[in-house]
């Protein structure tokens, strides 16, 4: 056995067990849900800029509904991942402003509040009898339809930092070298465009062909650039010895390698080609299939990128 070890090699012969995955699937789900929650707003704003409202008749209520549902999933798993969930209130009573977790929690809460107002107005206008006749909340929404258009620009503006702050948390996680790159900020943005367009594709059945073509275009662009960035980091990592050692968990084969490449093929390569093809010929079923694949693949890619830096011994 000695002959297999280089004479200058150092081997740990006694140590304590080290922690493995600290932030697990709940944080992956958290990031994935947030990408959808903010992405539908960003992509929805793009569509409203490009097309008339009549071309997307349900967008006014379904956009805040999707954002509301997925932001609540995001916040639920943020809370659930805490070892002391009831102390979440400390973020608001004892905020520490150098922490991106604090800033993000405040921004996400404000964002959700505004989304909720938009949802009440949108549902109130589209479904007068929901949730029951005489509901004061939706009646208030119907009366204040103008408020929707007033707060929407702020919501779009706020969606950007809410999308990006997780990258800042990762940058503050200075023990994990793989996350210490400006590329992470762009990856978060592309993930939001990807997830937002995919989610809206699933509800775009009665939209105009042009609106759906724009959704396919956003999906194609987002998957392309996100894939290229992953490939750049995968093949041409130039950051540090720690980042290289982290990527070994993918390069060397094993479950993370399989998950990563499944994610890349399912979530990025296949949806890209389907989306490009759909810009020419409108095939709703195929485009929905691409959207589902993109959402699944995005989860897998995020999961790998979240977990592998945590495998590396720090001391």
């Amino acid at each position: 056995m000695e002959s297999t070890i280089h004479a200058t090699q150092a081997i740990v012969t006694l140590d304590v067990p080290i922690p493995e995955i600290i932030w697990g699937w709940m944080i992956t789900l958290n990031m994935w849900a947030k990408s959808i929650g903010t992405g539908v707003i960003l992509v929805g704003a793009f569509l409203l800029y490009r097309h008339k409202k009549d071309e997307m008749p349900n967008l006014r209520w379904i956009m805040p509904l999707l954002a509301f549902v997925f932001l609540n999933i995001f916040l639920l798993f943020t809370l659930t991942d805490l070892h002391q969930p009831y102390r979440m209130i400390h973020i608001f009573t004892h905020p520490h402003w150098t922490s991106a977790i604090t800033v993000g929690a405040w921004m996400a809460s404000l964002f959700l509040l505004l989304i909720t107002i938009m949802l009440i107005i949108g549902i109130g206008e589209a479904f007068p009898g929901v949730p029951f006749k005489g509901c004061k909340l939706t009646a208030w929404g119907r009366k204040n339809g103008g408020l929707y258009d007033k707060i929407f620009p702020f919501v779009v503006f706020l969606a950007i930092p809410v999308t990006l702050y997780t990258a800042i948390i990762m940058a503050e996680s200075s023990a994990r070298e793989l996350w210490q790159a400006p590329a992470e900020v762009m990856q978060m943005m592309w993930a939001a465009f990807m997830a937002g367009s995919a989610a809206l594709i699933l509800v775009s059945g009665n939209w105009s062909r042009e609106a759906r073509r724009d959704l396919a275009m956003v999906l194609a662009i987002a998957t392309f650039f996100s894939f290229m960035m992953y490939m750049g980091e995968y093949f041409f990592s130039f950051k540090s010895a720690e980042a290289e050692a982290t990527l070994e968990y993918v390069h060397a084969g094993g479950p993370y390698n399989i998950e990563f490449w499944f994610g890349m093929v399912l979530g990025f390569i296949i949806p890209f080609f389907i989306a490009v093809a759909n810009m020419k010929s409108d095939n709703k079923t195929l485009l929905r299939f691409a959207a589902i694949l993109a959402l699944v693949g995005l989860y897998m890619a995020k999961d790998v990128w979240l977990k592998i830096p945590q495998m590396l011994p720090l001391s």
């Binding site: 969930p85 102390r87 979440m88 004892h94 922490s99 996680s173 720090l314 001391s315």
Partner: peptide, 17 residues
């Protein structure tokens, strides 16, 4: 008494301390 158990510090500490 104040810690919320988010484990952010565990992710940030480069020394695994």
């Amino acid at each position: 008494e104040r810690c919320i158990g988010c484990a952010g510090c565990m992710m940030a500490c480069p020394y695994g301390a």
